[in-house]
């Protein structure tokens, strides 16, 4: 049996909101250590890797490994029924064909229960764990979201170049071109505003703006985003959870 209780429904809401426009359904793999998901979008360009560690939960038990096939649009509708501050418990028997979702209002004496029909999903998984990294940028997630939105107005591609002391985001299209350069910065009073850039090799990569638009839907999950880049390889965009992460692997665009 699986039972996981979130201190606040808002966390699961944000996770599902960040995933649902990229993949319509995916398997949630539940083990005694927590819940993980790997899912690829229809065009096979963007991969989501989610890990919700056991410590994320107020209470967690999973007696036997369970795979829950979940339609994210339907899941989003049901968890949207709870208030952000409610306790949210997900519950499934070992051979369940539904997932129980329970909201508890912390002030009123009110409990709401829902059942979500589970799906049988054939997923083919990719081996993404052994990636090397040439450059790592950590910056405020809201800043990264704004850069992606602003550059998308110019072009369907965003070029990221990283040198020793700066990262440059640029786009060029029919109406014109634009660029944003960021440099490392330590803000002691507001550590969430700090920017770090570490580099083994210079980077010059281009990514599709529409996929970056999907990635920045995770912005509310974390004040920071870490971008790991390797020349001629997919970029990794990581939003940390209180215990775990939501990562996106995005295949680059190459010159023909």
């Amino acid at each position: 049996m699986l039972e996981g209780k979130f201190e606040e429904a808002s966390l699961l809401k944000k996770i599902v909101e960040a995933m649902k426009d990229c993949v319509s359904s995916c398997n949630f793999n539940c083990t005694e250590n927590g819940i993980s998901v790997q899912a690829v979008d229809n065009s096979r360009v963007l991969l989501i890797s989610l890990l919700i560690e056991k410590d994320t939960f107020e209470e967690y038990r999973c007696d036997r490994n369970i795979t829950l096939g979940i339609g994210l649009g339907s899941f989003s509708k049901i968890i949207g029924n709870g208030a952000n501050s409610d306790y949210l418990t997900i519950q499934a028997e070992d051979d369940a064909d539904t997932l129980g979702i329970i909201f508890e209002d912390k002030v009123k004496d009110k409990i709401s229960e829902y059942n979500l029909k589970l799906l049988d999903i054939d997923a083919d998984l990719l081996e993404v764990d052994a990636m090397e990294t040439d450059a790592t940028i950590t910056l405020p997630s809201a800043d990264f979201a704004k850069i992606c939105k602003d550059m998308k107005t110019l072009s369907e591609s965003l070029q990221i170049t990283v040198t020793k002391d700066s990262a440059k985001f640029q786009s060029a299209g029919e109406i014109g071109s634009g660029s944003v350069v960021i440099k490392p910065k330590t803000d002691i009073d507001h550590p969430e505003e700090s920017i770090t850039i570490s580099l083994d090799k210079p980077i010059d990569l281009s990514f599709g703006s529409k996929y970056l638009s999907d990635i920045i839907k995770a912005t509310s999950l974390s004040q920071k985003v870490t971008i790991k880049l390797t020349e001629d390889s997919p970029g990794v965009f990581e939003y940390k959870l209180p215990s775990g992460y939501l990562r996106f692997y995005l295949a680059p665009k190459f010159d023909e």
């Binding site: 690829v40 065009s43 096979r44 360009v45 963007l46 991969l47 083919d124 998984l125 990719l126 081996e127 993404v128 591609s157 281009s206 599709g208 390889s233 997919p234 692997y249 295949a251 680059p252 665009k253 190459f254 010159d255 023909e256």
Partner: peptide, 14 residues
Amino acid sequence: FKKQKTLSDFFPAK
């Protein structure tokens, strides 16, 4: 012109 690659170009199937 840049061509969009897919993840299968980089990662083996598990």
